[in-house]
Computed example of a mutant assay.
Amino acid sequence: MSSQQQLKTRARKDYPFLLEYRTRWSDNDMYDHMNNSVYNFLFDSVINSYLMEHCGLHPPTSAQHPLMAHTHCDYFSAISYPKVAELCLRVNKLSKSSVVYEVALFEKGVEQVKAVGELVHVFVDRTTQRPNVNGMNSQLRQGLEKLFVRSEPSKL
């Protein structure tokens, strides 16, 4: 099964954290579905909500903060106003100073995933803008470990 086919089979149970978002009229584009750029805003929002609520991140003052190093999104079907989106979050890889997130967007009440994104944060020191030699702080790491999902071994 290809990577994209595997992503299409994602279910809410594959993700430890869920955040609801009520779509807005202004999220739709002229094609009457949510504009692609809104997905990135939502993915960023669910990640930062988790970091603030469960990892002790306080954006204006935290000594370490995340810088986006990579984003990617696979779109499978559209969602539009006035639907409610469910943003589901997991961590696929956790390194010394970086984390690879996977975010899935579902429509409330619909089983099939609408889109799956991958985002990479590198946590840097606020002053130097470089990764800390000791990596991310323990509160960040412990919070992110709660989202870590071990990948299944390949069945070749």
Rank of each mutant, 00 (worst) to 15 (best):
T71Y: 08
N134C: 05
L147M: 12
E111R: 08
A11L: 14
V38N: 02
V84W: 09
P66L: 06
P131H: 00
R10W: 01
I79K: 04
K83C: 13
V133P: 15
V116L: 06
E145V: 11
N137E: 09
R22Q: 14
V110C: 11
K8D: 01
E20P: 15
T127M: 13
S80T: 05
R141W: 07
V38Y: 04
D14S: 03
A85E: 02
L156N: 07
T71F: 08
M52G: 01
D14C: 07
V100G: 13
V46T: 11
Y75M: 06
K93V: 11
V110G: 05
R10S: 06
V84M: 11
L51C: 11
R22E: 09
E152F: 03
S151E: 15
L119Q: 12
V122Q: 10
H121D: 00
S26G: 14
R10V: 01
S37M: 09
N137S: 05
Y39H: 10
D125A: 11
P153V: 03
L89V: 09
N40V: 04
L144D: 08
F41R: 15
E111S: 14
A104E: 00
A85V: 11
Q5R: 10
Q5D: 13
V99G: 04
R150W: 06
V149K: 06
D125E: 03
